[in-house]
Amino acid sequence: MLVAISFYLLAFVAIASAFMVVASRNPVHSVMFLIVTFFSAAGLFILMGAEFLALLLVMVYVGAVAVLFLFVVMMLDVDFVELKQGFLQYLPFGFVVALILLAEMIMVGAAYFTGETKALATYSGEKSNLERFGEVLYTDYAFFFEAAGLVLLVAMIGAIVLTLRERDGVRKQDITKQVGRTRETAIEMVDIESGQGVG
């Protein structure tokens, strides 16, 4: 009962806020609704007993990815009038694409529901989520894990190659050098005769 109520509540919020992501006029609000969507999805994960996944979703997507989204959206100077100009022009094309996708979804959905249905696998065992993850992630899926790491590395190299500019003649702070200064290297004693200046 409680589980059912939670499920429908979370599912409703997830879908409603996902709709609002697209529908809302202000991109910052869109991101906010996106966060709500992520949250509800995390809640659904918890209902399935996948607590680890749920918290990971919150940590990675809400805690990091959406913050960066927000960053970009806030910094962008979006001109809505300009953005809306091409709207009518693209509408028919978008409509056709949406229609095709909708038809496909209905077809697929119908095929799914008319076929034999399988119950969702929920895990309830002795070991915690985390242990189960570790057991398959570093054995059966070790290759994917490593290869995905390499993909991220490539993305990182790309970001650095495209943005890092090494300029010559830039003064940089060298903290070890600063801290390593002694009285002898830092202070020079000068005898100045009156009226002469350091010169």
Binding site: F144, A147, A148, V151, V154, A155, I157, G158, V161
Partner: peptide, 17 residues
């Protein structure tokens, strides 16, 4: 299918750059 996707993505990311 996962290996397929990872392979495609790895070469594509390198090529974009």
């Amino acid at each position: 299918l996962l290996a397929l996707y990872i392979g495609v993505e790895m070469q594509a990311l390198a090529l974009y750059v």
